[in-house]
């Protein structure tokens, strides 16, 4: 084993997680290796420094928030499974490139469809129907330059 592997064992040793045989091998190595002994010393020092920290206490407001929430929920109340929301009611989480691609496809698709639709409207039958419709609409002529326009209805 290399020193790096023994140092991982040192970390497990201070956590009291080494098997007897592993500890034996590690101690044999430590008796010969000053670098790994220094690692053991500094690991213990780090632990001492970390444990100097006084743990923060839960604020009193937490008691009120938690115990009130627990009291409002009757102990006998069973946990009901949530009613699954319909697809359009759900929040979808997607990455920006996916959304951008979807928007592009929608816009491009709608432009393509509308141009295809416009082309298909240029058929002779449609033109005939359009002409007939225009003939049926009365022509309105507005003459300019008069205060009251003269309207001729044919």
């Amino acid at each position: 084993m290399k020193c790096d592997e023994y140092q991982e064992q040192v970390s497990a040793l201070i956590d009291n997680e080494l098997a007897d045989r592993e500890s034996e091998l590690l101690f044999a190595h430590l008796s010969e290796c000053s670098v790994c002994r220094a690692t053991l010393r500094s690991e213990l020092e780090l632990r001492a420094n970390l444990r100097e920290d006084i743990p923060p206490l839960a604020p009193e407001e937490l008691d009120m928030r938690v115990l009130t929430a627990a009291k409002n929920r009757r102990p006998s109340e069973p946990d009901r499974p949530g009613i699954p929301a319909m697809i359009w009611q759900r929040r979808l989480s997607m990455r920006i490139p996916v959304v951008a691609a979807a928007v592009f496809v929608l816009i491009f698709g709608s432009v393509l469809l509308s141009s295809m639709w416009a082309e298909s409207n240029q058929t002779a039958d449609v033109r005939t129907v359009q002409t007939a419709f225009l003939m049926a609409v009365p022509t309105v002529e507005v003459r300019a330059y008069t205060m009251e326009p003269v309207v001729t209805i044919q």
Partner: peptide, 30 residues
């Protein structure tokens, strides 16, 4: 309560967020 709050506080480094996480934890435990 103190251990859960301290764990959340040390992980989140923010008292209000730690309190929220601790509250949600106990609601789920209940």
């Amino acid at each position: 309560k103190h251990r859960v709050y301290a764990y959340c506080y040390r992980l989140l480094r923010h008292p209000q967020n730690a309190e929220d996480a601790a509250q949600e934890t106990f609601v789920k435990i209940h």
